[in-house]
Write a protein that binds this DNA or RNA. Structure first.
Length: 638
RNA sequence: GCCGAUGUAGCUCAGCCGGUAGAGCAACUGAUUCGUAAUCAGUAGGUCAGGAGUUCAAAUCUCCUCAUCGGCUCCA
C-alpha cells in the first residue's frame, strides 16, 4: 500500500494509506467535525465523504452549516423528493432539481397536476425514505452507458441532458439512493438519514430549460435546513415577510389601490400615497437641480414616424400602446428620450454647452404581459425619474461616475443596499459593434474607477446600448432593478445630433439614459417593504397626529394643530369622542411617527406630549420645540 | 403570454352531497367625557368577480371572460 500525505483543515499533515475515504480521514482527525460534515473539498474540488483519496491532497471539511454544506443537503433532499414523486405517481419524468438560495426545487413532467394534498403525500413518503437511511452512492459510467440506462427508464430529459454535454466529456456520475438513480454532479450527503428538517412549499409551472418555447413542467419548491429550529425560523421569517408585503400595507395604510374595474397594472394613489410620492418627487427635483440637471417636460403621445426613426417601432413595438389621431398613428411613450432629443436639436450646440442634462419625471406606459403584473413593483403605467445626458465622448467617464455617485447617495438616504450589474449587448439590438464596444468599455471603466463591485450580465442590455443596473432587494429577497445607466451611441446618430467642437467642425455627442430611483411606483413598493410601512419622519405622509383626551381639550388641540399646519408639519387630528387608548392604537397601526396627546396637563402648560411610534414618551415640550425636532429630522433624512 | 391555485360584506374568513347567505373586525347611530395599543349598546351593509349553460332550483355543477396569488418567460 502506498502512503500519501494529507493536509488537514487545521494545516497539519497526516500520513495515511492511499484509498482511504475522506470520511475515515476526517473522523480520525476530529470526531466532532465528522459528525456534521456532509461533504468535503479535496484540492479545491467538492467531493462526497465516501471519496477515496489516492494521492497527496489537502482536505477541507464541508460542514452542514456552511453555504456549500447546506446546498449539498438541499440538493440531496431534492433527490429524495424526486424519488418520492416517482414512487407515488406513475408516468412522471424527472428533469433537474438543484438547490437554490433558500431551498431547492425539482422539475417534473407529469400528465396530471400536483395538488397541495399531493405535497403532503410526497412529504410523508420522503419521511419514509429519510427513515430508511439509504446511502447516496456515487458511480461513474460512460456517457453511452448512462444514455442507455436512462433510455430504458424512459427518462428522456436525462438523455437530452447527457447528449448535450460537450464532446470531451466521456463519463458522467450517477447517484443512487434506494432504488432511485439520478444523473448528478454531486456532491451529496452520505445518506438520507442525515436529513433532519425539510418542507415542501408550493407547486409552480416552469419551462424546460427556462425557454418559453419548450414544454411547461411542474416545479415543486421546498426548503431544508440542518435543524428543525432553523426550518421553523425560516417559516416564521416567511410569515413576517408577508406582513411587510407592500400590497397588503398599501391597503392597510391607505396608500394606493389597483382596481379591476379600472384596469390591471394601473395604480390609483390615495391621498397618503400621493403625498408620499410628492415628497419623493420634490426631493428629486431639488437634488437634480443641485447636480446640474435641467428639468424638462415632454408630451405623452408622439407621432408613429418618430418611433420609427428611433428604432422603437421595430424593436419595442410589442411593449407599446398606439392610438390614432385624425388618421395619424401616435405611440404612447414607453420611454422619455425622444422629446429630450428634440430639445437638444432645437438649436445648434457648442462643445461649451456640454454636457446637457435633461431631467423629467416622465410617465411612461409599457404593455406588460398579464402574468407579470405585481402590485407597485410591476405595472403598466409608471413614472421614471429619467434623464438624458448629452456629452462629448471625453466627458463620458466623468458623467457616468457622477451618476454612480448620485445613485449611491440616494440609496444611502433611503436606506438601501444594492447590487451592481453590467449588462452587455442582447441579440435583438441596433448599432455597430464598434459603438457597442466603446459604450460597454466606457461603462466598465467608470465602474472600475469608482471601485464598485459588479457582475457581468451577458446579453441583458437595452436594444440601443449596454447598461449598468443597480438592484435592490425586497424582503422576500427578490431583486428589483431601480437605477440604471445606459450608454447610447445610436440615438444621437439616428437623430443626427451634433455639436460644434473647438475645431469648428461638427461632432456627434454621446447620450446617457439614466434613472436613479427608476420607477417611482416600484421604488415606493420596495420602500414600503423596507420600512414595513413605518417610514422615516421625512417621508411619512402623516408625521404627527394630535389626540385629545376629552372634548374639553379640543380648543387647545385645534390651536396645536393649526400651529403645526402653519409650520408645514404634515399633521392630522383625532378629536373623536373615543378613549385615548383607542385613538393611540389607530395611529399606531397607521405607523404615524408622533402622537401628540392633549390633556389637562398640556392645556395648562401650553405644551404637547409626543409619544413616538415605538412607544417611547418624549415628555412635555413646547410646540416650537416639537417643530424644530421634526424639521431637524427631515433635514437629516431621518 | 404559459402552468397551477384562488375570487362570498370595506378587511379576514365560514357556508358539507345543489334548496336563493353568515361570523369577527371595520363602518354608521346613540350613550359614555375617559391619560398612552381596542367603552358599551344598537343599526346598516352582499346581483356570492362578470357572462353563458345544466337544473324545478346554482355561491355550490359545466364552459367562457376578467382579476388576483405562486412561479416560468420578460422587465423599470
Amino acid at each position: 500500500m502506498n502512503e500519501i500525505k494529507i493536509t488537514l483543515p487545521d494545516g497539519s499533515v497526516s500520513v495515511e494509506q492511499a484509498g482511504k475515504s475522506v470520511k475515515e480521514i476526517i473522523s480520525s482527525w476530529n470526531e466532532e467535525a465528522a459528525k456534521t460534515a456532509v461533504a468535503a473539498r479535496v484540492n479545491d474540488a467538492l467531493v462526497d465523504l465516501s471519496y477515496p483519496i489516492e494521492k497527496d491532497s489537502s482536505i477541507d471539511v464541508i460542514d452542514v452549516a456552511s453555504e456549500d454544506g447546506l446546498s449539498a443537503l438541499r440538493h440531496s433532499i431534492s433527490h429524495v423528493m424526486a424519488q418520492a414523486v416517482q414512487d407515488l405517481f406513475d408516468g412522471v419524468k424527472v428533469t433537474i432539481g438543484p438547490s437554490i438560495e433558500d431551498g431547492f426545487y425539482y422539475d417534473f413532467e407529469y400528465e396530471n397536476t400536483f395538488t397541495p394534498e399531493d405535497l403532503d403525500r410526497i412529504e410523508k413518503r420522503m419521511a419514509d425514505i429519510v427513515a430508511a437511511d439509504h446511502p447516496f452512492e456515487r458511480r461513474e459510467v460512460s456517457r453511452q452507458d448512462a444514455v442507455k440506462l436512462f433510455e430504458e427508464k424512459g427518462e428522456t430529459y436525462k438523455v437530452e441532458l447527457i447528449n448535450d454535454l460537450p464532446q470531451e466529456v466521456k463519463t458522467v456520475s450517477l447517484y443512487t439512493q434506494g432504488d432511485f438513480i439520478d444523473l448528478c454532479r454531486g456532491p451529496h450527503i452520505p445518506s438520507t438519514g442525515m436529513i433532519k428538517a425539510f418542507k415542501l412549499l408550493n407547486v409552480a409551472g416552469a419551462y424546460w430549460r427556462g425557454d418559453e418555447r419548450n414544454k411547461m413542467l411542474q416545479r415543486i419548491y421546498g426548503t431544508g435546513f440542518a435543524t428543525r429550529e432553523e426550518l421553523a425560523d425560516y417559516l416564521i421569517m416567511i410569515e413576517e415577510a408577508k406582513k411587510r408585503d407592500h400590497r397588503r400595507l398599501g391597503r392597510e395604510l391607505d396608500l394606493f389601490q389597483v382596481n379591476d374595474e379600472l384596469g390591471a397594472g394601473l395604480i390609483i394613489f390615495h391621498p397618503k400615497g400621493a403625498l408620499l410620492r410628492t415628497i419623493i418627487e420634490d426631493w428629486e427635483r431639488k437634488e437634480h437641480l443641485k447636480r446640474g440637471y435641467d428639468i424638462v417636460l415632454g408630451p405623452q403621445i408622439l407621432k408613429g414616424d418618430l418611433w420609427k426613426k428611433s428604432g422603437h417601432f421595430d424593436h419595442y413595438r410589442e411593449n407599446m400602446y398606439f392610438t390614432e389621431v385624425e388618421d395619424q398613428l401616435y405611440g404612447i411613450k414607453p420611454m422619455n428620450c425622444l422629446s429630450h432629443m428634440l430639445i437638444y436639436k432645437s438649436r445648434i450646440r457648442s462643445y461649451r454647452d456640454l454636457p446637457l442634462r435633461y431631467f423629467e419625471l416622465g410617465t411612461v406606459h409599457r404593455h406588460e404581459k398579464t402574468g407579470v403584473l405585481h402590485g407597485l413593483l410591476r405595472v403598466r403605467q409608471f413614472t421614471q425619474d429619467d434623464a438624458h445626458i448629452l456629452c462629448t465622448p471625453e466627458q463620458l467617464n466623468d458623467e457616468i461616475r457622477a451618476i454612480a455617485e448620485f445613485v449611491d447617495d440616494a440609496m444611502k438616504i433611503f436606506g438601501f443596499e444594492y447590487e451592481v450589474e453590467l449588462s452587455t449587448r442582447p441579440e435583438k439590438s441596433i448599432g455597430s459593434d464598434e459603438d457597442w464596444n466603446l459604450a460597454t468599455s466606457a461603462l466598465e471603466h467608470a465602474l472600475k474607477d469608482t471601485d464598485m463591485v459588479y457582475e457581468i450580465n451577458e446579453g441583458d442590455g437595452a436594444f440601443y446600448g449596454p447598461k449598468i443596473d443597480f438592484k435592490l432587494k425586497d424582503v422576500l429577497k427578490r431583486k428589483w432593478q431601480c437605477a440604471t445607466i445606459q450608454c447610447d451611441f445610436t440615438l444621437p446618430e439616428r437623430f443626427d445630433l451634433h455639436y460644434v467642437g473647438p475645431d469648428g467642425e461638427r461632432h456627434r455627442p454621446v447620450m446617457l439614459h439614466r434613472v436613479i430611483l427608476g420607477s417611482i411606483e416600484r421604488f415606493i413598493g420596495v420602500l414600503i417593504e423596507q420600512y414595513a410601512g413605518a417610514f422615516p419622519v421625512w417621508l411619512s405622509p402623516v408625521q404627527a397626529v394630535v389626540l385629545t383626551v376629552t372634548d374639553n381639550h379640543i380648543p387647545y388641540g385645534e390651536e396645536v394643530y393649526r400651529q403645526l399646519m402653519d409650520a408645514d408639519i404634515r399633521v392630522q387630528r383625532d378629536f373623536r369622542n373615543e378613549k385615548l387608548g383607542y385613538k393611540i392604537r389607530e395611529s399606531q397601526i397607521q405607523k404615524v411617527p408622533y402622537m401628540l396627546v392633549i390633556g389637562d396637563k398640556e392645556v395648562d402648560a401650553k405644551t404637547v406630549a409626543p409619544r413616538q411610534r415605538d412607544g417611547q414618551n418624549l415628555g412635555p415640550m413646547g410646540v416650537e420645540a416639537f417643530v424644530s425636532m421634526v424639521r431637524d429630522k427631515c433635514e437629516k433624512f431621518e
